Amino acid sequence: MRAVDDPVRRVRSRPVEDSVLEAAWLYYVEEWNQSQIAERLQVSRATVVNYLQQARELGHVELRVDPVTFNRQRLSREMRDRFGLASALVVPGPSYSLASVALAAARYCPDLIEPGDVVGISWGETIYEMAERMLPRAIADLTVVQMVGSMPSPYIFTSESCSTNVALKLSGRVVNLYAPAALASAEAAALLRQEPLIRQHFALLDRMQKAIFAVGSMDADSHVVKSGIATPDDVAVYAERGAVGVLCGRFVDGDGRHVVGPVDERMIGITPEKLSGLAAGILVASGENRVRAMRGAMVAGYATHLVTDEPTAQALLQLND
């Protein structure tokens, strides 16, 4: 007996990868809606949503933010004019949103990186989330370098995970810093800095053309305290000396100047002035408690490109110089 040709059975027996590709093509190229695709593939609308998500995660489809369009936004223009930035991507919306800023940076930052670049990566929740949300893209001869030493941290976003994830997403070579962010004594840190492997690492950082970094707060539950780099007493000393936030593990004042204090001689990592003069310093940050440190990073010239959200941009523009 001849088998009956069942189109529904044919659709359901095809490889999932084929369905993912067809759903992506119909949605993004031919502009079908999700209900039409579900009917075509004989699956639920929820399955179509899952297919489209898979297509993005696998790199079959890449959504890019057009910086030219967003730079025409009023807040973006004002931020660029006020702080002398090459670009300011301001995520629209009434609320502070680290997740939205990280997603915008994930779509935007790879466009600023070119083949052969040496790119420094800092650490923190925002940078980690950005790396997690990046879509796979191969950038030839890319080197990604960890800028801050490692630390025993209660967070998933360690220094080495941030740099490693960016390198994995962009098919680059990762060079992690095999040293603690802060040692027990200044003497131990001084000895470690003389190790050939550590000296080679900092020689590579001297060659970096671009950097992606965030800024941290100085709250009692801030990352710099929770990760063990500084104690609350240390933070109080830095605050008395004019510090308003943390940049690459170092304390900075409202003009971005490095505030030296009790932790610095024990630290392994770059100092803020190393971010000066780069082809691109990309600051990715959100939050009212980070505004003064963000201003400092821009005023000092460390940041040439900014990714933030609307409330943070408004707060920055309202700060008195």
Score class of each variant (00 low, 15 high):
Ile37Leu: 04
Ala189Pro: 01
Gln36Cys: 02
Ser35Ile: 11
Gly245Phe: 11
Asn320Lys: 15
Ala167Glu: 04
Ser217Ile: 03
Asp66Trp: 07
Ala3Gly: 11
Leu183Thr: 08
Val263Thr: 15
Ala179Pro: 03
Leu52Met: 11
Asn165Trp: 00
Ser100Pro: 06
Asp221Met: 04
Leu283Phe: 07
Leu306Gly: 00
Tyr155Arg: 14
Gln146His: 08
Tyr27Ala: 09
Glu57His: 07
Asn320Phe: 02
Ser122Phe: 00
Ala24Phe: 09
Asp206Tyr: 05
Met134Asn: 07
Ile156Ser: 06
Ser97Phe: 09
Arg241Glu: 14
Met134Lys: 10
Glu57Phe: 04
Met267Ala: 08
Glu17Ala: 15
Arg14Met: 13
Leu89Lys: 00
Thr143Asp: 01
Leu204Glu: 09
Arg45Gly: 08
Glu125Asp: 15
Leu26Pro: 04
Glu265Tyr: 02
Gly254Tyr: 04
Arg250His: 05
Gly116Leu: 10
Leu75Lys: 01
Gly228Gln: 12
Leu177Ile: 03
Ala188Phe: 01
Ser163Arg: 02
Gly256Cys: 05
Glu187Asn: 02
Arg45Pro: 07
Ala106Thr: 05
Ala297Gln: 06
Ala220Ile: 06
Ala99Val: 10
Glu114Lys: 15
Asp141Met: 00
Arg257His: 15
Ser163Glu: 06
Gln314Cys: 09
Ala131Ser: 14
Glu195Gly: 03
Val16Pro: 01
Ala315Thr: 09
Pro262Glu: 10
Gly296Asp: 04
Gly277Ser: 07
Ala188Trp: 01
Val20Phe: 10
Pro272Cys: 07
Leu283Ser: 02
Pro232Phe: 11
Glu22Ser: 10
Val246Lys: 00
Asp206Thr: 04
Pro7Trp: 15
Val235Tyr: 02
Gly172Thr: 07
Val16Asn: 02
Ala186Cys: 11
Met79Ala: 09
Arg199Tyr: 10
Ala188Asn: 02
Leu275Cys: 01
Gln200Met: 12
Gly93Ile: 12
Thr271Lys: 08
Gly301Pro: 01
Asn176Arg: 14
Phe251Val: 04
Gly216His: 00
Ala105Tyr: 03
Gln53Tyr: 13
Val101Arg: 02
Leu205Trp: 02
Ala293Thr: 05
Glu114Phe: 13
Ala214Arg: 00
Arg9Pro: 02
Val237Lys: 08
Gly256Pro: 03
Val91Gly: 01
Leu75Phe: 08
Ala186Gly: 08
Glu310Asn: 02
Thr304Gly: 15
Glu195Arg: 07
Gln42Tyr: 11
Arg2Ser: 13
Leu247Arg: 00
Ala211Arg: 00
Lys226Met: 14
Arg82Phe: 11
Val174Asp: 12
Gly172Val: 03
Thr69Ala: 14
Tyr302Phe: 15
Gly281Lys: 08
Leu191Ala: 14
Val307Thr: 08
Arg199Asn: 10
Val237Ile: 12
Gln54Met: 14
Glu114Met: 12
